[in-house]
Design a protein around this nucleic acid. Structure first.
Lengths: 333, 333
DNA sequence: CTGAAAGCGCTAACAA
DNA sequence: TTGTTAGCGCTTTCAG
């Protein structure tokens, strides 16, 4: 690759002048400018962004780290972030950590994070200790469904409120035996599953109902096939239910398939509510009633926090929980 | 951030020794190693990967450029690439171009591509001229559904064969009025839509049938809502059909929703086949018969080609078309 | 308006 | 085993 020096030599000026031309700085005579641009063209010169970053101390790039790109929720999140950043002229790259419980940071080391001007880190499998170890001098905003170290900005979905809304809606529409698919019976779970299960319990309590603990169904990986098998097995085992709160839309899709296979009709026999409002959910048959997690707000708020850190402002740490919204479709009556 | 120099000063050795320790090179006495590591720990030293890249002339990173992360096909592709690269100890970043027809390269400049050791470029909206201008000295493999410049390696899906298989399957299962949703009547279209439409025509021709041109339905953006509206409108307008080949699974999902809304049953009244075999397609009701584009092969082949370029091998340019596979599910009889 | 020098943080090559 | 030197390609600073 040709360098500034090569262009300088070819056009008979100094590297500094070439740099000035290439960066459109003023105070360059029209004649030299043309000469330099001709050389740039001829040699096919391209700035070396690595060198520029080293010199500038900034890369001009923001990173979004997600567990997996093939999980629609994260794909949609990534696109939403890109859509906000692109018009602002900021460059985004997506890092995929692989959601390894053993440590996202091995895949995405602190050193690598340091390359970016700012990082939105969607933490799923990460240990608290690892998160706590994150340098707070790197502009960083955490996106994740559990409470994080107090010294880092965080934006969280309205997990509890969403689960409560979803379950209350099922109760209101007449369901009385409402399974939670992807829930947990572990009361110490403070993560996404724990919070959504707590919302399911809270809605029951508010209605004066006591949920049957057998209605807490296991799928732990939020996979469609797993959820489908779980609901089929439960129905086959004689578990009676007339409603399902699925902890994610992906799980809900599996649940709908499983209920269908079991000969149960939605919503006549079993009503279903999901969580995430994936793009596909609107186009299922029937359309999936779900919780809109307001990814738009998550994105705008987390970028606000990030820009604040990036500008060096020494503001208070914020831990935000976004509002959510129930979207009613055909899977509930 | 502390630098090698800071650590060197703190531990009373030279920067080179620190570098040697940090990089686990041999020929460092146990005593100094410990002293250095202590200083590294204390100062919280982290390598500056930008500086290392500049020095080494390589970034150790491969980029995958996709139009949008919220399009499930690309999300699944990205995850598949990451899953192959991760175990090999290579680092991947995902760049999102935004599929702007005006030019993917403005979002993702040549200069930026140059930062990576290798690039998988999924081209959609890119102009031929822009693609042709791409330096061939950057290890680059094109992923895209149109024929690209001869000087660049390319991996393409079996568009024609897949569309042919899908349509032939519909014909075999008794469909005679088979719409193509997302097709084109423009015979000069040599892109993905053109090839898949050609496959639809080829299957008809092979069966001695002549398709009604009114069965070519418009949706151009492969969006679910658009496809849903298009099929509804067509049915409402009295178009008779007993089969649909949707150019993508996303389109197929919209089609299924639209047919459902129009009171038509799948597969009894209308059979549907898609293309992409998205993860969700298996869990629709009914399951979607579709073409598996063998993303696994696309990934392994494109990485083979890429690694070859990255190793500096001066091999023949390859233009590969991957085989495809029909996956039969409930949406066809 | 143009140029020379210095240095961002790192490592290969050589010297001690 | 450890240290010194040079330079990756760029831009800031200061001097013509």
């Amino acid at each position: 690759m040709p360098t500034l020096k090569d262009v300088a030599k070819a056009s008979g000026v100094s590297v500094m002048t070439v740099s000035n031309v290439v960066n459109g700085r003023p105070r360059v005579s029209e004649a030299t400018r043309r000469r330099v641009l001709a050389a740039v063209d001829e040699l096919g010169y391209q700035v070396n962004l690595t060198a520029r970053s080293l010199r500038a101390g900034r890369s001009g790039t923001i990173a979004l780290s997600i567990p997996r790109a093939d999980h629609p929720y994260f794909g949609e999140l990534a696109a939403a972030v890109a859509d906000v950043l692109q018009p602002r002229g900021r460059h985004l790259v997506i890092e995929q950590t692989g959601a390894s419980r053993e440590g996202e940071l091995s895949a995405l080391s602190q050193a690598r994070l340091q390359m970016y001007d700012g990082v939105l880190l969607s933490v799923v499998g990460m240990q608290d200790a690892e998160i706590a170890r994150l340098q707070s001098d790197l502009p960083l905003v955490l996106l994740g469904e559990k409470t994080m170290p107090a010294h880092l900005d965080q934006v969280m979905l309205g997990n509890l409120e969403g689960a409560r809304l979803a379950t209350a809606h099922l109760i209101e529409r007449g369901a009385r035996r409402i399974a939670i698919v992807g829930g947990t019976v572990d009361p110490t779970d403070s993560g996404m599953v724990g919070m959504r299960t707590a919302g399911w319990r809270a809605a029951h309590a508010a209605a004066g109902l006591v949920p049957d603990e057998r209605l807490v169904l296991p799928p732990e990986h939020f996979e469609m096939a797993e959820a489908r098998a779980a609901i089929r097995a439960a129905v086959a085992a004689g578990l009676e239910l007339d409603g399902v709160f699925a902890v994610t839309d992906q799980v809900a899709i599996g649940v709908m398939a499983g209920l269908h296979e079991s000969g149960l009709r939605i919503p006549q026999d079993v009503q279903v509510v999901g969580f995430d409002d994936l793009a596909v959910s609107e186009h299922l048959c029937p359309g999936l009633t779900t919780i809109d997690p307001r990814v738009d707000l998550v994105v705008s708020e987390s970028l606000r926090l990030l820009e604040r850190r990036m500008s060096g402002e020494d503001a208070e740490v914020e831990h935000l929980v976004m509002p959510v919204r129930l979207v009613v479709r055909g899977s509930t009556r």
